[in-house]
Design a protein around this nucleic acid. Structure first.
Length: 333
DNA sequence: CTAGCCCTCCGCCAGA
DNA sequence: CATCTGGCGGAGGGCT
């Protein structure tokens, strides 16, 4: 790890350009700024990304003129970037400016990675860069998108699609998932988890529950670990040990640890305990279950362990949680 | 909260 | 030579 991180320090920051135009959605832009535009040096020792904002006009009116942007760079910057982020458009029926499409094509030809957030996929498709490739868009627009760009292989039911040099994401929230996926590819799971934790911290700061949503980096579907993770989640009450996970994955405990580090940025037991706590919380919301039963079925074993882990991860104890969130059967997901 | 057993984790090395 | 896998032991933390 030390060897790896020293290499990272030496490597330069990836240059990311956020391409905005009249009517770009501030939400997707904010997602890009949150993931790629925050200074990380004080916390992780280096800057993984350098973010620039570029637009086809010197000033840009955002969201029906609610506010505007000035001081943006011009389209020529696209081709010298490492990645270009293409966020939402005002509507999918208005064609993009020819100059924007030309700049995107030139960037792609120069080897720049293109990242379409939500309806940004329309812009990429208009530029002809998705023909013959897999892509996705917001679920509401899948049919329209497929009809308009028949040469694109549309993938429904996924958060995002990674075609290597062209990446697209589904609905707005999936922009974050795709961005974190990019961070993981560029810098590894450890950095991605750091970015993810910081994101949760600032998004859910109130209520003293900043770690409540322990947002792990989403596992990629084709990750070799995925079946084992699903398997384990189904039988938390069996009190699984790390060796059980290793057996199911058909690998040694040593290799399992390595895979967890590489793919999830955590360790098997730490991951298991997060799953156990999440399951325990759902069980606690059912007032008919004693804490002994909750501890048993969640795989945490004893009430002492349940208390200790909840206190450590959430800063709250089981009975307090039940008083605040229980009482009524919660089926909300 | 504590004592104490057990498991987990990680670095290191060997082998494929 | 590079990369991946697995075994081992000790330290430390988890669990009862």
């Amino acid at each position: 790890v030390s060897q790896e991180s020293s290499q990272k320090v030496l490597r330069r920051a990836h240059r990311v350009v956020l391409l905005v135009d009249e009517g770009s959605n501030p939400f997707e832009m904010a997602c890009a700024c949150e993931i790629f535009g925050i200074r990380r040096q004080p916390e992780i020792g280096f800057e993984p990304y350098a973010l620039r904002v570029v637009s086809p006009t010197p000033t840009v009116a955002m969201r029906d003129g609610l506010f505007g942007l000035t001081g943006t760079g011009d389209l020529a910057e696209l081709s010298s970037a490492d990645s270009v982020i293409v966020p939402n458009r005002p509507d999918v029926y208005t064609n993009s400016r020819p100059a924007v499409l030309a700049a995107i094509r030139a960037a792609h030809a120069a080897g720049v990675r293109l990242i379409g957030l939500c309806t940004g996929a329309y812009t990429l498709a208009e530029a002809g860069l998705l023909d013959g490739r897999r892509a996705t868009v917001h679920w509401k627009l899948l049919d329209d998108f497929a009809a308009r760009f028949p040469d694109v292989r549309v993938e429904p039911d996924v958060l995002f699609v990674d075609e290597g040099d062209v990446l697209t994401s589904a609905g707005s929230a999936a922009a974050l998932d795709l961005a974190l996926h990019v961070v993981r590819k560029d810098w590894g799971a450890e950095v991605a988890n750091h970015v993810s934790r910081r994101l949760v911290f600032s998004a859910f700061r109130d209520g003293g529950q900043q770690q409540f949503v322990d947002r792990a980096v989403p596992a990629v579907a084709e990750a070799p670990l995925a079946p084992t993770l699903d398997w384990a989640k189904q039988r938390l009450q069996r009190r699984l040990r790390v060796t059980d996970l290793a057996d199911h994955a058909h690998m040694s405990v040593t290799s399992l640890h390595r895979r967890f580090r590489d793919e999830l940025g955590t360790t098997p037991l730490a991951w298991l305990n997060v799953q156990r706590i999440h399951h325990a919380l759902r069980l606690i919301e059912n007032p008919d279950l004693t804490m002994e039963v909750v501890a048993e079925r969640s795989g945490l074993g004893t009430t002492a362990n349940l208390r200790a882990l909840m206190h450590r991860h959430l800063g709250i104890n089981p009975s307090t949680y039940r008083r605040q969130f229980g009482g009524r059967q919660s089926t909300a997901e």
